[in-house]
Every structure is written in structure tokens, then in C-alpha cells.
Design a protein around this nucleic acid. Sequence first.
DNA 1: CTGATTTTTTAACATTTGTAAAAGGATAGG
DNA 2: CCTATCCTTTTACAAATGTTAAAAAATCAG
Lengths: 194, 194
Amino acid sequence: MANKTELDSFLNFLQKIQLLSPEALEAIYSLCGLISIRKNQNLQEIGQRCRTIYFVKAGLARIFYLKDDNEVTEYFAFENDLIIRAESLFTGKPSMKAIQALENTVFIGIPAESLFSLFDTFPEIERLFRKIIEQAYVATVNRMEAIQFHPAEERYAQLMDEKPDLIRRISLKHIASYLGITQVSLSRIRAAIR
Amino acid sequence: MANKTELDSFLNFLQKIQLLSPEALEAIYSLCGLISIRKNQNLQEIGQRCRTIYFVKAGLARIFYLKDDNEVTEYFAFENDLIIRAESLFTGKPSMKAIQALENTVFIGIPAESLFSLFDTFPEIERLFRKIIEQAYVATVNRMEAIQFHPAEERYAQLMDEKPDLIRRISLKHIASYLGITQVSLSRIRAAIR
DNA sequence: CTGATTTTTTAACATTTGTAAAAGGATAGG
DNA sequence: CCTATCCTTTTACAAATGTTAAAAAATCAG
């Protein structure tokens, strides 16, 4: 198990979403574990049922899946981001998605079942979790809108504007698949705005 | 306020997601109201802050927004579907989206603030709501995947397969915008598979 | 029923994005 | 330092979808 200072960033992250009593914090704390994964290794493989909620303490990771033998990046998680394979966690089905470290990465992991069982004792933890999902839901609806109605060039410009880190730390092929375009197409876009 | 039989379908819908105590059901029941909207009229206008959660008791409705003066349909709600402008409800910002009745429609409405304030007394209602959002979130992630990586023709075929009702009850221009393509493009697709 | 309005289809052309293959750069391990 | 590998760009061409306009079909109101 991790010691308390190692979990500071995570517990702070949670407190900003929903203030928690010392008891609830302690209960969450006691479930947390640290997992280190080397660059390019997978934290979770495709086909596994997702039973853990992760938080990136340091490093960088992504969720990806295979579409016709091509890797498609669904999500990037930087330091202090949650990373959850929700389609599996909420449905109980095996996940068709993998979690991969794009740099040497330290994750904080919480077993989902243990966390969920805290909901009965600590409604405030269920509330925290509800708010997390609400935020993720709104973000996803907005991203869907972008993919549907903004040309790839705009989406690239916006992404670079919001997260200039991406281009420094993530290979362009991953960024392309995240944007829903091919690498060739992204190259063209980059050439056009140069 | 509505009488109990009028709310049966709604309360049944909720019970299937999360079993509720009689007290919790009664608390929800007492907040519900019925609203009838004629075909092509808006239940909620663009620019209003969303403060109500709706359920379609009878009829058919959609959420849409304007993109360069064109109406884009984000969501269709048939009988026994929830219809919520989440981006506004969860953020408190004015909604850029309208709710419109596509047929004469009877909605059940619950003031969101009143419902949310039940969360403190009835954790089971917060749980219900958490599960509703989880389902919506997973559905949205899947839809995003479809839009990103399945050609329009496949998406149309799948939609017709899952909800054959759509084509009978909804105009093709609305379906086209829901699929993220132009009406002309949808016409071509329909001509191709004929 | 009839004319007006709306919806859907068709056509021609432009633009965007994809595919495949090759070349150029960068990087890591020996 | 050198080679092998991976990443990125470029090129040429194909396919999908958008744009505009007009015709055809369906729907609606009087």
C-alpha cells in the first residue's frame, strides 16, 4: 500500500470535485495502490474485464483499441488525470480497450468493487463518483460534437491550443488517431498551417 | 401535479434502473409534472438554462442546436426515454440546445434542483441518478466511436436496424443531421441500398 | 381538389480525407 | 559510429462527402 504523501495529488484531485470527511478520505486512502509501468508497456490488456480505477500520478498514458488492425487512441491521461475504461467498468463486459503507458508512468489504482462498496457507508463517495461521471459525460458530448462538425484542421488547432503538451510528448500517429484522421491527413494539416 | 397512474411508465422506468423504497418513490412522484407540447413546438428554447429533467410519456422529441444556421439533431427521445440537456444541467451554463416536440408530445418534468436536494435524504435516488448518467456516458462513448470510424452508410444501416421507427416518424433531414451528414448525402446512401 | 409549401431526390462539381508506396528523419542498440 | 527500426512527410490517385441548384415527390391548408 502507498503512504499518504504519495497519494496527496490524488486525494487533492478528489477533494476539488467533492469535499470529503476525514473518514471517507481514510477509506479511499486505504484502498489505493501504486503501480509503475514502463514506457510502451500496457497497464491493462484488451479483453480483460476492467475492475480498477486509475489515476496518473506521474507520466502519461492512453486508452486505445484496435480497429481493423490499427490502433485508435480514445483518450490521453496526463499527470493528475483519471483513466477509466468505463464501457467495461459500468457494464461488466470485457473491455475491448487497453491502457498503455506512453512514458514511464506511476498510476494510483483503486479496485472498483471495493470502492463501490464504500458507497453504502459513505454517500459522499457515491456523490463524488457521480460528479466525476457527469464531468466525463459532458466532455464526451462536447468531443462528439467536435468530431461531427468541425473539420480535422480545426480540431487539431483546438487541441494544440488546449494541450500544447501533446505535441511535445505524444507521437503524431497517436494524435492523428485521437483526432479521428489518418497520419497522412494530419501531416497535410501540419504542412498547411506552416 | 399529475396523478399516480399517469406517472406509472416513468416510475417503472426508474425502478428498472434502481429499486426504490416507497418513500423515495413518493418523494419523486410529488415533484413530477405533466407538460403537453404540440408538434414542432419547443419545450425548451436555445439560451435558457436547463433546470428540468424530462421524460417522454407519449410522443416524440429531439434535442437540437444550431451550427452555422443549420439545425443539428443531437438526440431523439421516443416514448419512455429520458431527455436531458446535460451540458447545461451539470454545468449551470445556458444551454445552446433546444428541446422540440416532433409529434404532439406529453412530457413528465422534474425540477432538477428539487430532485437533487432529495439526494441528501435518499442516497438511493442519487444512486439511481448516477446509474442513469453512467448509461448515458457509455452510450455516448459508443456513438462517438461510430461517428469516428464507421462510414455514414453503415451508421444509417445500423440506426435503421436498431430503431426502424425512426424512418417512419422522423423526417430524413433530422436523421441526416443526427448521423452527422448532409441530407443530400443521406439521399445518396438511400438510393445506393435500394 | 388545388395551389402553396415542405421534403426528398438527383445532378454536377468542389473539397476533404483515405490509401498505398516511397523517401526522408529521428532514434536506439550494438 | 553504424545499422535497423520506427516515425513523419510527401506524392499520386481513389473514394467519400459537401455544396449548390433544380427537379420531383409528398404534404398541408384553404
